[in-house]
Design a protein around this nucleic acid. Sequence first.
DNA 1: CCGGATCCCCTAGGATACTG
DNA 2: CAGTATCCTAGGGGATCCGG
Lengths: 127, 127
Amino acid sequence: MVTQSEGPVLFGSPYQADCPARRILDRIGDRWTVLVVGVLADGEARFSQLSRRIEGVSKKMLTQTLRGLERDGLVRRTVYPEVPVRVVYALTDAGRTLCEPLRALQEWAIAHLGDVAASQEVYDRAN
Amino acid sequence: MVTQSEGPVLFGSPYQADCPARRILDRIGDRWTVLVVGVLADGEARFSQLSRRIEGVSKKMLTQTLRGLERDGLVRRTVYPEVPVRVVYALTDAGRTLCEPLRALQEWAIAHLGDVAASQEVYDRAN
DNA sequence: CCGGATCCCCTAGGATACTG
DNA sequence: CAGTATCCTAGGGGATCCGG
């Protein structure tokens, strides 16, 4: 099964400009991006709600991350010009499609984290 | 469909010590880790081969990444004490299970990169 | 309440040279 | 060939203050 011949198998040469691996890594390689998508997967949220649910994120990083996702068309930002402004963030249809692969990753994590931890212990004991 | 109730919701509270999201992000958040696994998905490889296929990675980072993967039990390192030493890296069974979710991500990237680029252009034009 | 603008620190990680 | 050790700097990202 590990065979591979032609076509854009695996991750190809990671430094081609148009290499998908590069792009996707630039996007999800950033921890905050993934966490924001994770929270928004539960439904829309306001800035302060995101701030609270993603403990440890600074306003600067949260803003920056949301701008990036908005630019990518994965998140929609809606401003309600009320008295104190209200801003709501939600995943777009495109953004929602990203949840699936992310969930697969999370499931992998849940399924294998125990083994990984055990392996680490063995490794550390031997070193 | 975006409803959610109980259970380990997508990424939950990201700062619990045992939160899977945290762990998995620590692992795949790093670009080199993902690229190494991607290359090894094609089969075992020597240090210099990895070095060549993953253009731009420094020896320091490659070593560090491989050590991390070995510690996690995802990669097996075999040393052949020949004249010039020969060292071969290969995915373990556990490591191979990680290929699937990663592939899903890559497929997402391929499918949506065009839209993302288009969205960016629109966004940038408006700003 | 949302988030822009600044300052500033710290460390991830690249370059280089050396060893077994 | 397969690393290890050392040095050094770019910029990620936190803290803080301000404006709409």
